[in-house]
């Protein structure tokens, strides 16, 4: 994973709540065994509608997605995160994320930014008014800023996730530091627990 420190750019306002992962990437796309190429499937059913916000050329090239509450609920499919990153998004802002989606984001390096509902709405409006609004997200400080409209939002990540993102650390490697402890835990597991013959 690449380190994630500062994300700068423009945002797309997706003012909908309850955007589930089935909408982010429909199940047809889940048959693929690769990790890349999911960008084309991002919101594919909604993108058929010419008025869908992602089809508005004013927002093309935006790298931040702003959405309503309960973004990424539903299916655990990490393909949803792969679709967002493959399309070019580096951060998603929402007042509330589905738990599994949020975890998946931090494993891949897509930044989940949880802002207050009210602050999110102000960003949604600001970006709807001005598609070229410049936004800066600072992981270390936990801030989202749009100085042109004097908007600032605060978000938090747990300490460990923040450290992993800032350093771009491999999660599995971090767990492997504890191999000794894993082995001694295993030695004490009850023998009646199920295992394959």
């Amino acid at each position: 994973m690449k380190p994630v420190r500062i994300i700068e750019g423009r945002a797309v306002p997706l003012s909908r709540s309850d955007v589930d992962t089935d909408q982010i990437i429909p199940s047809d796309w889940l048959k693929r065994v690769e990790r890349t190429g999911f960008g084309r499937g991002l919101f594919s059913e909604w993108r058929d509608d010419r008025n869908f916000i992602l089809n508005n050329p004013e927002y093309s090239g935006a790298n931040i997605l702003i959405a309503g509450p309960n973004f990424g609920t539903g299916s655990s499919r990490e393909h949803a995160v792969w679709a967002l990153t493959d399309y070019g998004f580096e951060a998603v802002i929402s007042p509330k994320f589905g738990d599994i989606f949020k975890t998946n984001c931090t494993k891949v390096g897509l930044l989940p930014v949880e802002l207050d509902l009210e602050v999110t709405n102000r960003f949604l409006e600001a970006v709807a008014d001005n598609p070229s609004l410049h936004i800066t997200i600072d992981v270390e400080r936990g801030t989202v800023e749009a100085p042109d409209v004097e908007l600032v939002g605060k978000f938090s990540l747990d300490q460990f996730t923040k450290y992993r993102l800032l350093e771009g650390l491999d999660d599995i490697g971090l767990t492997e530091r504890f191999l000794d402890k894993i082995v001694s835990y295993e030695a004490n597991r009850p023998s009646w627990l199920p295992s394959a013959p």
Partner: peptide, 18 residues
């Protein structure tokens, strides 16, 4: 509980999850 594919890889590799 449900996990994403990165976590599937994590559990396959270590049988543990943070």
């Amino acid at each position: 509980f449900g996990i994403g594919t990165s976590e599937v890889e994590h559990v396959l590799a270590t049988q543990c999850l943070p």
